[in-house]
Computed example of a mutant assay.
Amino acid sequence: MAKVEFSGGTWRKSSYSGGGNDCVEVALLAERVGVRDSKNPDAGALSVSPSGWRGLLGTVGRD
Rank of each mutant, 00 (worst) to 15 (best):
A27Y: 03
N40L: 07
E31W: 11
S15I: 07
G52M: 00
L56A: 10
A2M: 11
V48C: 03
D22N: 15
V35L: 15
G55Y: 05
G61V: 06
S38T: 13
G52W: 03
G44T: 15
G55P: 01
W11Q: 07
R54K: 13
A2D: 08
K39F: 06
S15M: 05
R54Q: 12
F6H: 09
K13P: 00
L46T: 11
A27T: 04
W53Y: 11
G8H: 14
R54W: 01
V4I: 14
Y16S: 12
S49E: 04
V26N: 06
G34R: 09
L56W: 11
R54H: 12
D37P: 03
S15F: 04
G61F: 09
G61H: 08
V60D: 01
L29S: 06
F6I: 04
V24P: 03
V4M: 08
C23P: 01
V26D: 04
W53V: 03
N21I: 01
A2N: 11
N21T: 05
R12L: 11
K13N: 00
A27D: 02
D42S: 14
S15V: 09
L28Q: 10
S17W: 04
V26C: 06
R62M: 09
G20I: 02
C23D: 02
K3R: 08
L57M: 14
D63R: 15
R12T: 14
E5M: 00
S15G: 12
S17F: 06
A30T: 14
K13Y: 00
D63L: 14
N21D: 08
G18E: 02
K39A: 05
K39L: 02
P50A: 00
V26E: 04
D22Y: 11
E5C: 01
G58D: 12
S7G: 05
G44V: 14
E5N: 15
S7D: 12
V24A: 05
C23V: 10
T59M: 11
K39S: 05
C23Y: 10
G20N: 15
W11L: 06
T59L: 12
G9R: 07
G58N: 15
V4R: 08
G61Q: 11
A43G: 15
N40F: 12
E31G: 13
K3S: 03
A43P: 05
K39R: 13
S15H: 06
A27S: 10
N40M: 07
M1L: 02
S7Y: 03
V4E: 07
V33A: 01
G19Y: 13
E5R: 04
S17L: 03
S14H: 04
S47P: 10
V35Y: 13
D37K: 06
S38H: 14
S47E: 07
L57G: 08
V26P: 08
A45Y: 08
R54S: 12
S51I: 09
S38C: 12
G20M: 03
V33W: 00
L29Y: 09
G34S: 11
G8R: 14
A2H: 10
D22F: 10
V33R: 01
M1Q: 02
R36Q: 08
R32I: 12
F6Y: 10
G58H: 14
K3H: 01
W11K: 05
R32A: 15
G44R: 15
G8N: 15
V35H: 13
N40I: 10
F6A: 05
Y16V: 09
A27W: 04
G58Y: 11
L46C: 09
Y16F: 14
V48H: 03
E5D: 15
M1H: 01
W53G: 02
R36D: 10
R12I: 08
S38K: 13
V4H: 09
L46G: 08
